[in-house]
Amino acid sequence: MKTTPSTDSSGRMFPVTRWSIVVGARDENSGESMAALEDLCRTYWMPLYAVVRRYGHSAEEAQDLTQEFFARLLQKHGLQAADRDKGRFRTFLVVALKRFLANEWHRDRAVKRGGRWEKVPLDTHIAERLYHESGANSLTPEQLFDKRWALTLIETCLGRIEHEYRDAGRAAEFDVLKVCLTAGRGEIDYESLGKSLGLNGGAARVAVHRIRKRYRSIFREEIARTVRDDKDVDEEMRNLLCALTR
């Protein structure tokens, strides 16, 4: 997991979004641009797999196709300017994938076998299980993609914050506190929460505030990675909430 600098005390501003690096790069195949794209792809390949499966490919074929799409994308000149001129990485990715599947790119994929895309480790067992858990059959490929995307985003954020707590030697604290991320009004008993953390009620409240604040900050940061402009973060958040609600 790549860690990014803490924005604990803000949450309002973000580091330069990674997608904006890809989009904004003067030389579209610059090292920085490609590294940023690869980093994004590694995080969001799972929704791609789900869509490929939804198009009727077998698990084995879907693995190959996802790998190949990945390889194409990361190949020099594989990314056309027109593709990149989209506001969101999510939109870009699904459009590019559909084009890939509709084209005949995959026909000569045997030629590519053994190429660089095999270096990308994708845990297809998990992907397969998640594909089934997504209620895939009732959704259009786009809906499935968006829902899978939202779940991936949430997993990524949870993973990041858990990692941060673990790195700070506070894994146990995270396990106790994580349920507070989704708690609503009056659902948290700060006294008993404090007891299990060895804190008083006030300190427990601070701990809850901290983890929620940090999670929100990470969440915005992760979304910001996939949009061109920070202004789009809130809208993207609402889109993803819709995707999850389906």
């Binding site: 299980r129 991320l181 809850v208 929620r212 958040m237 993803l240 909430l241």
Partner: peptide
């Protein structure tokens, strides 16, 4: 789903980010 979001509700995990304040309402 058992295997997602550490057992927490993904929708709630997303929705809390849209609230204007960090702490639970109220």
């Amino acid at each position: 789903a058992s295997s997602t979001a550490g057992g927490l509700c993904p929708r709630c995990l997303l929705e809390m980010n849209l609230a204007s304040r960090t702490m639970p309402d109220g």
